[in-house]
Amino acid sequence: MRQPSRVLASALILSLLLGGCSYKQHVQNSDQNYGTRQKNDPKMQGSRMYGTLGTDSTQHHNRFFEYSSQLSRDVTRLNGIGQAIVMLTDKNAYVGIVLDGTATHAVRSGSKVIREQNNGGWMEGVYNHQTGSDKWDNRQLVTPYNSYFSVNDHNELSSKLKQTIAVRVRKLAPAVQEVHITANRDLVNQFVEYSRESWAGSDLSPYVEPFNILVQKHFAGGNEMPVPLQIIKQKADKNGGKAIIGKYSGSDPETGSFGNPGDAGGASQNR
């Protein structure tokens, strides 16, 4: 007959092993880990729910767009996401996110993404620890210093992260044809500007053209960038309330630079 102490010790070891396996599986299947792919991971079951799903060349030719506060809040609740801004159109959902580092492997495995933010100033009580400056553009959600994290190319985001976001978006917006997701700094900050207009009760219809150019640039390889909304509004103030809706002629498709504001052109529209 086995000694009671040995039986208890064996039971304790087995319990710890099973508990450890259970915890590991829980983490892998949760939104705390966007890297490990298990055979039965619920986040990766079924077909791909994000990105380009068809061959329609007009997929990003949206007729209208609107800010969704509900979807933005819902996606923001996911681990690893500091803030999400979701725009809905007559065709698609566009999700701009910034990462907060609370989940692992939000950027795909093996990625050579260069960290875009320098947050060294947090410990020094300044915005830019390289210059000692405490000034920043507080209209921007994501900046080069003391900020949430951005990723320039949406292809570098974990497929597991994008699938998790897309599934959540489609639960509340089942009619959308495609869900496009990025953590690009320029796009996210422009989405913030559009959302501010929505919060203020302003009509977004005058900005459909620059919005379409923006999403075509980031999700369909477009070479043009729109005039940033802040500049459109500044020009409108100088033009008797008529917004200049146009695009830059000298944008850089590799860096995502908005180019020279002096190159902005386009037709005038009543706002």
Rank of each mutant, 00 (worst) to 15 (best):
F258I: 15
Q70K: 14
R48W: 03
K91H: 07
F64D: 10
K43L: 06
N223E: 12
Y67S: 06
G262L: 02
S133N: 08
S249Y: 05
I213Y: 06
V27E: 13
H180D: 08
V167Y: 01
V86I: 04
G80Q: 00
A267E: 13
F64C: 13
V86C: 00
G121N: 04
K135L: 08
V227G: 10
S10C: 07
Q230E: 11
A236Y: 05
H180I: 07
V98K: 00
K91C: 02
W199L: 02
E197T: 15
M123T: 15
V227C: 08
G201T: 12
N270Y: 05
G82Y: 09
W136Y: 11
C21G: 11
S198N: 02
R77P: 00
V95F: 00
S147T: 10
V113T: 15
E254G: 10
Q230L: 09
P206A: 10
E156A: 07
W199I: 10
H129T: 15
Q140C: 05
Q70W: 04
K242L: 11
I85A: 00
E156G: 07
Q163V: 14
A11G: 05
N62Q: 13
T255N: 01
H105K: 10
Q59D: 11
N189G: 14
D56N: 09
S159F: 04
T52Q: 15
A264I: 15
I244N: 09
Q130V: 14
S10H: 02
F219H: 02
S69P: 08
V227T: 15
K238R: 07
M1S: 13
A175Y: 08
L14W: 04
P253Q: 12
G132R: 03
T102F: 01
E178F: 11
V151D: 05
N40A: 07
